[in-house]
Design a protein around this nucleic acid. Sequence first.
DNA 1: TAAATAATACGGCAATTGCCCTATTTTATA
DNA 2: TATAAAATAGGGCAATTGCCGTATTATTTA
Lengths: 215, 215
Amino acid sequence: MLKIAIVDDNSFLIHAVKEKLSFFDDVEVKHTSLNGSELLTKLQESHKLDLILMDIEMPVLNGIETTQIVKQKYPHIKIIMLTAFDNDEHIFNAIKAGADGYLLKEINPKDLYDGICETLNGGAAMNPSIAMKTLKLLRNPIDIQNPRDQEEISLSTREVEVLEQLSKGLSYTVIADHLFLSPSTVRKHIENIYKKLQVHSKMEAVQKAKNHNII
Amino acid sequence: MLKIAIVDDNSFLIHAVKEKLSFFDDVEVKHTSLNGSELLTKLQESHKLDLILMDIEMPVLNGIETTQIVKQKYPHIKIIMLTAFDNDEHIFNAIKAGADGYLLKEINPKDLYDGICETLNGGAAMNPSIAMKTLKLLRNPIDIQNPRDQEEISLSTREVEVLEQLSKGLSYTVIADHLFLSPSTVRKHIENIYKKLQVHSKMEAVQKAKNHNII
DNA sequence: TAAATAATACGGCAATTGCCCTATTTTATA
DNA sequence: TATAAAATAGGGCAATTGCCGTATTATTTA
């Protein structure tokens, strides 16, 4: 029987997670908490737990701080961050704090269950988009020292692809060739990218994109 | 239709992977290669590819080197390393080379297919045990050092100054203004820089300069 | 000191880029 | 199912860039 705890300041979401886990007979939700310190109190009484599903943004004691403390005191307990957001700083801080996985709340029951099992078997549960972010962090150690917050810069998938090509120093026509697009389309994408990033040249675009971990 | 290529020096394993993919109607294995240089030749003819499943240990040109080259030339093509081993060095080198995912050959058809789809959607395909290793790498930044090669590229003091300005994304005229030079002089300096670095645009110059620790 | 290198500066020209416009089709989302 | 957002594509134009000349004036250095 897998003994799980859930920590989330939103009781509705706790309920939703519980429901997802209810499909699996070998999972038992031992207790739930609305914040980190509530969890710590419960752990003082008993730390017979296999794994904690932890939200990040909570009052009193947030998920990152709580993870750090739990991992310090009870290193045998696995912790998966289960959160709505996947911004770089949260991910990196969670990893540093010792989290064993990072999943998004929108996850379906089976993937959640699989993630729990994999984590208990020594692996790491990770949403693919988050896995990609960790790869980018590994490639750009600069970001690790000073992770900057990406404001509300939201580029479309295609725009990111174009940006990646731009960062190789390629010309419009070559990019069009690579992405099987008309040069006009590439130009238009780049125009839109410039507007979103508020820049006026390839170099500035690439630089800003790198600073914001877009590429 | 997802256009896939497979690169593996073991033709039996190529066949096995093909068979796993045969369950899925929207996957088409465009071509297979027994090593990196064979793949590169095929890509020169046509790079209409979505994703490459790449072995690591191959003769002639191994998976890491091949990944680096492909990612440089055709950054739009996703690459998943598909290998028998999961040692730390391979993983880290593959990530640095630009791999978008890292799966083990023992994977079942569905997970392989899911991994491919997730990767094409901008995520990263990762085996849980490998995900855990990347987390550990992120926690120990000591391992992450990039020893760069220092070839004999000798730029003059002035040229380095101009290059630094270039890297800010500034235009010829603005650079001239900053360095109290005539725009013509700046243009000439940049011309000389391009010749020394053997590049043909601002972006390439800055990129190459950064790789060689000039700026 | 003579020769080589670096730094300065200009003119011309083709190609590329940045920015404005419109417009259709596809995809997502409310 | 409307509506919005994204992706596609093209025309036009001014500014910038990349590349080719040439040429004068320091500054090194052999």
